[in-house]
């Protein structure tokens, strides 16, 4: 097995896991959403890397070009980017309201307030 040809994927996996770590380890609700963003963006990078063809061109039909990268992952990821920003927007709206209701966006303090009553 050629390690070099997988190296690209493994770096992307490291990126995904860095984002995932922020989501589950951080207590600040905004930071969690940032982590989610990084996690998702890195998944997009994985998809797009998988569609790349060496010496290929962008999939816009041009005279004299015969090798193109795979257009289907591009289409899927365009949709997924939109889904990602939609989720972020809804999440941030919730965070804004949580701050109005609790006066904090730290998970531990919210939990304390909920347990107190």
């Amino acid at each position: 097995m050629d390690i070099a040809s997988y190296f690209n994927y493994w770096i992307v996996i490291v990126l995904m896991m860095l984002g995932f770590y922020i989501v589950i380890a951080r207590g600040n609700l905004v930071k969690k959403l940032i982590g989610l963003n990084i996690f998702q963006t890195s998944v997009f990078i994985l998809y797009i890397s998988a569609g790349k063809v060496s010496d290929g061109a962008a999939p816009i039909l041009t005279e004299g070009v015969s090798v193109y990268s795979n257009p289907l992952p591009h289409v899927l990821i365009l949709t997924a980017i939109v889904v990602g920003i939609a989720t972020t927007a809804v999440g941030l709206a919730l965070v804004a309201r949580i701050h109005e209701a609790y006066g904090t966006v730290e998970e531990s303090q919210i939990l304390e307030q909920d347990n107190a009553c």
């Binding site: 989610l36 996690f39 998702q40 992952p73 989720t87 609790y102």
Partner: peptide, 26 residues
């Protein structure tokens, strides 16, 4: 107000779930 926190937690876990599904489909 706990509904907001419940919705937020669901959003985080639901999105992790959906992203896992996306990885699997990929």
């Amino acid at each position: 107000r706990r509904a907001l926190v419940a919705a937020y937690n669901y959003l985080i876990m639901g999105t992790i779930g959906a992203t896992f599904i996306l990885i699997g489909i990929g």
